[in-house]
Amino acid sequence: MDEKPAEPSPEAVVPRRSLARRLVRYGFLAVALAFGAYFVTKQWDAVVAGFAELSWQALLGSLVAVVAALLGAMLTWRTLLADLGSPLRARPAAKVFFVGQLGKYIPGAVWPMLAQMEMGRDLGVPRSRSAAAFFLMMPIQIATGLLVTLVTLGWDRFGWLLLIVPVLLVLLEPKVINALIGYALRKLRREPLERPLTRRGMLTALGWALAGWVAYGVHLYFVAPQGGLLFAVGAFALSWCLGIVTFVIPAGAGVREFAMVAVLAPHLDQGAAIAVALSSRIVIIAGDLICAGLAGIAARRDSV
């Protein structure tokens, strides 16, 4: 008798397309880190001198501002989730958002969403609402970030952004968003959202997002005050938006730093600008870890 063919191993059933995507993501990350390492090494003496000019007081103030900015992002997400029909108390919401956001450091854009969906489900939040709130965060951040860039860095240099902002504003119209979400859920054969997004909820979310950009600008101003506070707000918003759109690379690694060095060029030499960009990245990572840790501890105490 013919022998029964062996069962394929788990590795063999992994779709080649999925494997190729992972390889592309890791490849992008490796290239970004390699170029970043070369760039820093080439300017090493100037970078060291730039770090020497940063005081612990400035870095501490920058960290406090980052925590405030992250809180603004959490409140943006919480507002969207509540408007869609799943209001959460502050502590559980903070845990779901901040712990889930740690997934952005993993290659691929879906890990924070998956984490938030699973943790949210334990709190009674339908997965479709968690996914909708997650995906709405990106256009809100990009639209408000580009608006902040226009206002703070000048219309003469970045007037071309006016071509993008109206498109984003149309996409942020609740009627358009509700139609797009409904279409996506039908295609996925999922139940429609019980409550549509309202204009009041969207405006409140936009307000929290703008507050977050101001806090991020303060964070950059502490370590790079040469251009003034308004310049710092715009410089960070622009570099962050460029990092967000390169979602293939975890947390925009490398892209945001390159953009920040370029934007800071009128006020800082290259070595000092690199030191500021690297300091910003380190402070933001520390802020993510602090917020996730504190939110987890607070939520655990709240449940006792």
Rank of each mutant, 00 (worst) to 15 (best):
A131C: 07
L114Y: 08
L75T: 01
L75G: 01
K95S: 10
A132V: 04
P87M: 12
V64H: 06
Q116Y: 05
D122S: 13
P92G: 10
G50Y: 08
V47H: 01
L54T: 02
G100C: 11
Q57W: 05
L81H: 09
D122K: 15
G61R: 05
W56F: 01
A49T: 01
A46F: 05
A58W: 06
P112L: 13
P107Q: 07
A65Q: 06
F97P: 07
G50C: 07
F51W: 10
S62D: 11
W111V: 13
A58K: 01
A73D: 09
A131Q: 03
G120P: 12
G120Q: 12
M74R: 06
V67N: 14
R121D: 09
L70H: 13
S62A: 15
M74P: 00
F51C: 05
G100D: 13
R129I: 04
F51A: 13
V96T: 09
E53H: 03
A133C: 07
W56H: 00
A68E: 08
S130Y: 05
R127M: 11
P107S: 07
L80Q: 08
L59I: 03
V48N: 00
P126W: 08
P107Y: 06
A115W: 09
Q101C: 09
L70G: 10
K104Y: 06
L54P: 04
M119K: 01
M119Q: 12
K104H: 07
Q101H: 12
M119D: 13
M113R: 04
Q101Y: 09
L63D: 07
A58V: 00
A131S: 10
D83Q: 03
L81N: 10
E53C: 00
R89S: 12
A46K: 10
R121F: 01
A49H: 07
A94Q: 12
A82Y: 00
R89N: 11
S62G: 15
V96M: 13
L123Y: 13
E118F: 03
S62L: 09
M117W: 02
V96H: 08
S130N: 13
L88E: 14
V125K: 13
P87Q: 11
A65H: 02
F98P: 09
I106F: 11
T76R: 15
G72Q: 11
L81Q: 14
L70F: 06
L70I: 03
P87R: 14
T79Q: 15
L84T: 01
F134L: 12
M74I: 00
F134N: 05
F51E: 10
S130F: 04
T79R: 15
Q101S: 15
V66E: 13
M119S: 09
A109C: 04
F51R: 06
Y105E: 13
L81V: 07
F51H: 01
G50M: 11
A65K: 00
A115Q: 07
F97Y: 15
L75H: 05
L80T: 03
A65P: 04
L80D: 08
M74C: 12
A132L: 08
Q57H: 00
A82R: 05
R78E: 07
V67E: 14
G120C: 12
P107A: 10
A69Q: 10
F97A: 09
L81R: 11
G61S: 08
V67Q: 15
A49M: 08
L71S: 14
A58P: 00
P87L: 10
